[in-house]
């Protein structure tokens, strides 16, 4: 370990935030760029499945709430791209990496939104899982990332509550609405458990990220926390989670839950999910259709 490396680790250990202009190991920088840009891409691609229901929202109030929510996600993308840019990469470069498939985004967004209840399930489960993942990131070691996460987490908790409220309304509605809500939960539950990433003993980057305090809790710890919360909340919804192994374990003080289908997870990540192609096609189309607008705007910035 070089002197600078030791110094750096001391600083991390003392919980002093790393700021953009300061020295940092190349690998730390690369890890952050990968993680933050992946996070930003997830916000942007994540606009698509929910955005698909803006024009079909069942009331004016729901339409406005959903529109504002999806707009929040665009804002999250913006903060995160800006945070990543402080590490020496441009937004255009990151977008290019997304479109070429070099950069990943959360695989949850490769699932389709079939009914209105999916908007509730996404808010409750997907935003809910995002919060569990992201709250520890408010204390992550890189300053700009941590600060972006504080703003983002505040908004995500609104989203989570709004989603829960959509499901609650459906659950208490007609039988058809109740069934719609249950069906959405059945489809979104397992993919949302996968949002915490592979199990700890199969997660190669975790140890180093924990040492650098980029990551502050392991995948499995966070996943367990999420299961414990949802297992309780689903009772208030008078709906169920699609897992017959789900049961309170007195000794562990946690809910036990069934086996996750990791095969599906890796399939979706490697591009074989139900909507991977659709999502990338939509993003690339928006980018290409907008090229003339960006060009014209740039010309003004440069001053003709």
């Amino acid at each position: 370990m070089q002197v600078t490396d030791t110094h750096f680790q001391d600083k991390i250990n003392a919980d002093i935030k790393v700021e953009p202009k300061e020295w940092m190991p190349g690998k730390y920088r690369q890890t952050l760029i990968r993680q933050i840009s992946q996070h930003a891409h997830s916000e942007i691609v994540g606009m698509l499945p929910e955005g698909a229901w803006i024009t079909r929202a069942p009331s004016l109030k729901r339409k406005a709430i959903l529109l504002a929510k999806v707009q929040d996600e665009a804002g999250h993308g913006l903060y995160l791209y800006s945070a990543a840019e402080t590490l020496g990469i441009t937004r255009d470069e990151m977008v290019e990496q997304l479109h070429s498939g070099k950069a990943k985004y959360s695989s949850i967004f490769n699932y389709p939104t079939l009914t209105w209840a999916d908007i509730g399930a996404i808010g409750w489960l997907v935003d809910g899982a995002a919060i569990i993942n992201q709250v520890p990131l408010c204390r992550t070691s890189y300053g700009p990332y941590a600060r972006a996460m504080v703003r983002i987490c505040r908004e995500e908790s609104f989203h989570q509550r709004q989603g829960f409220e959509i499901l609650l309304t459906l659950s208490k509605g007609t039988q058809a609405q109740h069934d719609m809500a249950q069906d959405a939960i059945n489809r979104w539950w397992w993919p949302s458990l996968m949002m915490f990433g592979p199990p700890d003993d199969d997660s190669p980057n975790t140890a180093q990220s924990m040492q650098w305090k980029i990551k502050r809790q392991s995948n499995d710890e966070l996943r367990q926390k999420f299961v414990d919360i949802c297992a309780e909340q689903v009772k208030a919804l008078e709906l169920t989670l699609p897992d017959d192994k789900l049961a309170w374990n007195e000794t562990r003080g946690h809910y036990d839950f069934g086996e996750i289908n990791w095969d599906e997870f890796y399939q979706v990540i490697s591009g074989n999910g139900p909507c991977n192609k659709e999502r990338m096609t939509a993003r690339v189309k928006a980018w290409e259709d907008g090229a003339w607008v960006r060009e014209a705007a740039m010309k003004e910035v440069i001053g003709q």
């Binding site: 606009m47 339409k63 999806v70 707009q71 665009a74 259709d289 907008g290 090229a291």
Partner: peptide
């Protein structure tokens, strides 16, 4: 305008048209 949400030419414009 809401049909643009998620499909705008730049993130900032996506946000503006949604507003």
């Amino acid at each position: 305008n809401s049909e643009w949400c998620g499909h705008g030419p730049i993130l900032e414009l996506d946000i503006a048209i949604t507003n």
